[in-house]
Write a protein that binds this DNA or RNA. Structure first.
Lengths: 335, 335
DNA sequence: CTGAAAGCGCTTACAG
DNA sequence: CTGAAAGCGCTTACAG
């Protein structure tokens, strides 16, 4: 038989109440004798008692668990944020459930519903473009949640993002300062506001420098088949702008794929080209030590997301009538 | 008020029982009139009813959830296996909780206890070397679990691993066939049986080829500070064996770090060197397209781990007296 | 065709 | 100092 409060109570001929008080550390506070307390602890240990957290949560109405939904667990950016969130949550006494939406709206919606059904206390989401149905439901129900990395300008939710426009601007600016005159933009998913902003920063940098831009320097990669498509797109750029001397990648995934292309085409990018990218992966130090990189503030994203969520959770549990203001956190990248 | 069975029952002036039957799809089976069923569904939808899975699990004794513990969620191998496991589990009607042990035994033990307290139906673990306390507890309690990637030869548990010895052998053999004569081994964590076996494969390949080996060709990197240590270790190898012409890395992380070293030292590994590695990351296609790589059978590891766990879970739920035999699955890598 | 009742394992007012 | 009792939201034998 599984060890439960009841079993301990019967063994010791005490009530479940007493056992519960002692084991939850309220023994002395409730005035239970030292002697009894010792016996209870001893017995719990002997029978390897493990409280059933489901039962506890069912009663208390809180699970001390938060859910995290990311588009892709194998993406180094998201997995690093996941780790930061896990650490921060743990510090706050919460455990984390991680799910991957695989950038699939339906999957993401399912995950949100599942988290709610499992009574997580709050949810952190890096949403997919069209995920509004369940997100709106969360808003209506006042279910604690916070978005990160991506958000919906038309929805008034908490979110934690990086300053995409300015980050891009600074990276591209650095490339120009280093001598690049014809900088190409390699990007993807521009329908995401986050990605669109990265394009804006690129454009502003070129404009300010009085450097020409144009359709021919912009490569929009469809993310579904980026491996093949990037070949075509880079080929096109080289064909139309033979003197291209810089590539700004809006994500590390595109950059890595481009390196594969350069290698296959025997293009030596170590001279004559300036490269730029948002988010650093370790391979870059070998592939392109001189690349202009904006490092994601992983730690800060994790901490802020958890912190905001904690506030929402506590507000809800304390039944605040006047909710605190929506938080929009925009973090700078590291250079 | 939160929508519950009770609320629907009161609204419809029916019993909770009826609502429960209908909503769990057993309406017709239990002979509940079409009309009532329609009403129940309509009402549930209107009130946005979401069953409380905690309550259900508490009653049924199963949570339809499995736990996964990996040493590092940001490691591309583990995160890919995690994704494979998530997909496979979902197909079996289970959802997944992922935790990272950060290669910390105490953390891992805590995670195992937490999973049990949350009543997950089973656990999949890529264990840290010394994690035996809670693993043994799982064995004693007959709690369903399966190890992957790493295992304990002295413990009789289910596990899914790759054929480490033979994989290494084949990679190094390929390097030798391509002309390498002085192949260095760059490895780490050799106290892990898994890693030790990879060294064994290397040694067998050299031996069979009648190629000399020796202390000077073996670099054991302490994993804690591998970034700095690999510099020292590679420097040593070049110093003592100037004509070294091959490097076999037992993990992709070491290989990536070595590429950074080669780049910093201006060593052109594209000629005159054979390289080998277990597990492929996308950067390799740009860094060293000719590298000899054994690709991890990610999908198979995920599927097999989940499958074995499912069997254990079902056996337990059906109270099998005669447990089925322990499963040791050893998968080949892809070449 | 439908319902009353017990129970999963906890917590927590309330009572003495 | 300790206990009896209710309740969290479900499911499921049992009864009619």
């Amino acid at each position: 038989m599984k060890t439960s409060l009841k079993l301990i109570a019967e063994t010791l001929k005490l009530s479940k109440t007493t056992i519960s008080w002692v084991l939850s550390g309220k023994g002395s506070e409730k005035g239970i004798s030292e002697d009894t307390q010792r016996k209870v602890w001893e017995c719990a240990k002997r029978l390897h008692y493990q409280p059933n957290l489901l039962a506890r949560s069912l009663h208390t109405g809180k699970s001390s668990t938060i859910g995290l939904i990311i588009p892709d667990i194998t993406d180094s950016f998201y997995s690093k944020v996941a780790r930061a969130i896990e650490m921060e949550a743990e510090e706050q006494g919460y455990s984390l459930m991680i799910c991957s939406s695989e950038s699939d709206v339906e999957r993401e919606n399912r995950m949100i519903r599942l988290f709610k059904a499992k009574q997580v206390d709050g949810i952190i989401i890096a949403p997919t473009k069209k995920s509004q149905v369940e997100i709106k439901a969360l808003m209506i129900e006042k279910y604690p949640f916070v978005l990160f990395d991506r958000f919906f300008p038309e929805l008034d939710t908490d979110y934690v993002i990086i300053d995409n426009e300015n980050t891009s601007y600074r990276v591209v600016n650095g490339m120009i300062k280093s001598g690049a005159k014809k900088v190409a933009l390699i990007t993807t998913n521009s329908h995401l506001y986050t990605m669109w902003l990265r394009g804006e920063g690129y454009r502003r940098a070129l404009q300010e420098a009085g450097i020409g831009m144009g359709e021919q320097l912009v490569g929009e990669v469809k993310f579904d088949h980026y491996e093949e498509e990037i070949n075509y797109i880079l080929d096109e750029i080289f064909a139309h702008v033979p003197d291209v001397d810089g590539f700004f990648f809006t994500t590390h995934i595109l950059a890595l794929e481009a390196f594969r292309y350069f290698s296959e085409r025997n293009i030596d990018i170590s001279k004559g080209y300036e490269l730029g990218c948002i988010h650093r992966v370790s391979a870059f130090r070998a592939l392109a030590p001189r690349m202009h990189i904006a490092r994601m503030p992983i730690q800060e994203i994790g901490e802020q997301s958890v912190q905001i969520l904690m506030d929402r959770i506590h507000d809800k549990q304390n039944d605040m009538d006047v909710p605190r203001a929506i938080k929009h956190v925009m973090l700078p990248c590291h250079f």
